[in-house]
Amino acid sequence: MAEFKLPKNSTINPGKNYSSSTSGKKRKKFHVYRYNPESGENPQLDTFDLDMDSCGPMILDALLKIKSELDPSLSLRRSCREGICGSCAMNINGRNVLACTTAIDDYAGDIHVYPLPHQPVIKDLVSDLDQFYKQHASVEPWIKSETIPAEDKERTQSVSDREKLDGLYECVMCACCSTSCPSYWWNSDKYLGPAALLAAYRWISDSRDEATQERLDELDDTFKLYRCHTIMNCTNACPKNLNPAKAIANIKKQISTNKLGG
């Protein structure tokens, strides 16, 4: 059954207050979701009052400042700090974003930082994306081809065929889209979600791939694909400005056209 309320052990309690010792004039409050499964306690919302004069411009900078100056136990994922590794995806003031490419100044008031919605939480801002990655693997995101290219030759592709992959291959697998999708919240055990479907479409569109029909047949399923009701949250959320909703609509169109013998 779809869940509309948090389970008892997930309701959030008020947490501790911290404050930067340096007393810069410009300050900002960050309310950060904390959860430690080992403590056996419910999650809590800690408040960090930061001195902005000694803080970098991005949300990730603020979180790292908290970690290095106020509470080293704060857990989060990050690596590239430039929007390319996809690991710092989290929910800031109600929207899924990459913390490293989101500017603090874009928010007028306090900033609320939560892990990605509707995923199991490992600790603090680190959510368990196991299912998400398994779904990605399930669409077999690699080239499938029977034809063997001539020796010492690459598989070539025309410029216009290559262009068909623009807007599809740039996905950094941050999961901002899938975890913003209501259909994915209710049915993530069966529905593949926008990120995996975008990856599927990337291979369906590749002129060098020879398993197009097989891929489409695999997706013709009430739950894997057709749970998408074009709500468009995914496209709205994508920090790389990709359009998974359109890719999904194209998959549906391609399957329908085949069915109708077009």
Binding site: S138, D189, D221, F223, I255
Partner: peptide, 9 residues
């Protein structure tokens, strides 16, 4: 979900 019902369309 690795099984496809081949319906939905």
């Amino acid at each position: 979900n690795t099984h496809s019902a081949h319906k939905g369309s």
